[in-house]
């Protein structure tokens, strides 16, 4: 419930910002963003009220539209999993995208792919070097297909 309240407040802020920002646009450019911003604000208010009402001790859960029971199945168990591994992987992914241009698409991808394989390995069970080799082969093949066959100009950077 606290999450919902926070989300609603953030979204209300977004809605107010959009309304203010759209003042600078011409009449036909601001119409649509305004309508949407107002809708977003109103809906977020509803969410805010809902979360406050439902957090009250005397509230009995109704049958429909339970905001708390939301999300896909993995989401409900999501926070319990390997959060550290997830965050490390996410950092690698961010680095991956940032390195694409300076280092080159192929090099950055092989590097980041291998790092992820290392982070995600199960000690004792995975034959790490085979997965790294497999990953490198896959990456190389895709890069070749895109560069040469499909003529997509993937960033070359320092190391191709």
């Amino acid at each position: 419930m606290r999450n919902d309240r926070l989300t609603a407040l953030v979204l209300i802020a977004v809605s107010i910002f959009s309304l203010l920002e759209s003042n600078r646009y011409g009449p036909l450019s601001r119409l649509f963003p305004r309508v949407v911003a107002v809708a977003l604000g109103v809906l977020s208010l509803v969410l805010l009220v809902q979360s406050i009402v439902r957090a009250r001790p005397g509230y009995r859960q109704k049958s429909v539209g339970l905001p708390s029971a939301s999300g896909a199945e993995p989401a409900e168990t999501g926070s319990s999993g390997d959060m550290r591994g997830m965050l490390f992987s996410l950092l690698v992914m961010v680095a991956w995208t940032l390195l694409l241009e300076p280092v080159g698409f192929w090099a950055a991808s092989v590097l980041a792919f291998s790092t992820l394989v290392l982070i995600l390995r199960t000690p004792g069970k995975t034959v790490v070097w085979k997965n790294i080799l497999g990953g490198a082969i896959l990456v190389t093949m895709f890069v070749l297909v895109f560069r040469i066959a499909l003529r997509v100009p993937l960033p070359e950077g320092l190391l191709w």
Binding site: L11, V14, S18, Y25, G26, L28, S29, F32, P33, V36, A37, A39, L40, L43, S44, V46, L47, Q50, G65, L66, P67, A69, S70, G71
Partner: peptide, 27 residues
């Protein structure tokens, strides 16, 4: 599961869609 959240998601999508050049005045 939550129509309100669905509608909020839709509104966020609509708002993201307005980023960039406006169709009429080019703002």
């Amino acid at each position: 599961k939550s129509t309100v959240k669905g509608l909020i998601g839709g509104a966020v999508g609509l708002l993201i869609g307005t980023i960039g050049i406006a169709p009429i005045e080019g703002t």
